[in-house]
Amino acid sequence: MDLVKLSRDSQALFKRLADRFPPDQLRMCRESGKGCEWNEMVDIMCAVLVKRNVPVTQDERDALADLLAMYPVPVEGYDYINKRDEILAALTVTPGTDCR
């Protein structure tokens, strides 16, 4: 796994989605990113997007799919990463180019 790419891509996607996250999950993602806990950050992002029906663009969905594809599953302790196909299918994808 290319950790530099994982770091860069997960941070970039998080920045795009951050204004749609509740404060507590926003803080958890930021702390995970600062601690280089990319698995935790990606898993939290997936959980928030699905559980809260956060709208995403097709580009954001594709970026998440690319992130999840970097992981050789199963990844112990990360339920959302391990269920990547289900997570991607459950996303609320909007037809527009901007969900803000």
Score class of each variant (00 low, 15 high):
residue 4 V to N: 12
residue 6 L to P: 10
residue 8 R to K: 15
residue 8 R to E: 15
residue 9 D to H: 12
residue 10 S to Q: 10
residue 12 A to S: 09
residue 15 K to Y: 07
residue 15 K to F: 02
residue 17 L to R: 02
residue 17 L to F: 11
residue 20 R to Q: 08
residue 20 R to Y: 02
residue 21 F to D: 05
residue 21 F to L: 15
residue 22 P to D: 11
residue 23 P to M: 02
residue 23 P to A: 09
residue 26 L to C: 00
residue 27 R to S: 12
residue 28 M to I: 01
residue 29 C to I: 15
residue 29 C to M: 15
residue 31 E to M: 09
residue 32 S to F: 01
residue 32 S to K: 06
residue 32 S to C: 05
residue 33 G to C: 00
residue 34 K to C: 01
residue 35 G to H: 06
residue 36 C to N: 13
residue 36 C to W: 05
residue 37 E to R: 12
residue 38 W to G: 00
residue 38 W to N: 07
residue 39 N to K: 12
residue 39 N to H: 14
residue 39 N to S: 09
residue 40 E to G: 02
residue 41 M to W: 09
residue 41 M to N: 09
residue 43 D to C: 02
residue 44 I to L: 14
residue 44 I to E: 15
residue 45 M to L: 08
residue 46 C to K: 10
residue 46 C to M: 04
residue 46 C to A: 08
residue 47 A to T: 11
residue 49 L to V: 10
residue 50 V to F: 03
residue 52 R to S: 08
residue 52 R to M: 11
residue 56 V to T: 13
residue 57 T to N: 11
residue 58 Q to Y: 08
residue 58 Q to V: 02
residue 59 D to T: 10
residue 60 E to F: 00
residue 60 E to W: 03
residue 63 A to V: 01
residue 65 A to D: 13
residue 66 D to Y: 00
residue 68 L to I: 05
residue 69 A to G: 06
residue 70 M to S: 08
residue 71 Y to K: 06
residue 74 P to C: 02
residue 74 P to N: 08
residue 74 P to I: 04
residue 74 P to A: 08
residue 75 V to E: 13
residue 75 V to Y: 03
residue 76 E to V: 07
residue 76 E to I: 07
residue 77 G to R: 09
residue 77 G to H: 05
residue 78 Y to L: 04
residue 78 Y to W: 13
residue 79 D to A: 11
residue 79 D to G: 14
residue 80 Y to N: 01
residue 82 N to F: 04
residue 82 N to I: 08
residue 83 K to W: 01
residue 83 K to N: 09
residue 84 R to I: 02
residue 85 D to H: 04
residue 86 E to Y: 09
residue 87 I to K: 01
residue 87 I to M: 10
residue 88 L to I: 15
residue 88 L to N: 04
residue 89 A to L: 01
residue 90 A to T: 07
residue 90 A to Y: 05
residue 91 L to S: 05
residue 91 L to R: 03
residue 92 T to E: 10
residue 92 T to C: 03
residue 94 T to G: 07
residue 94 T to A: 14
residue 95 P to F: 05
residue 96 G to Q: 12
residue 98 D to L: 11
residue 98 D to E: 12
residue 99 C to S: 13
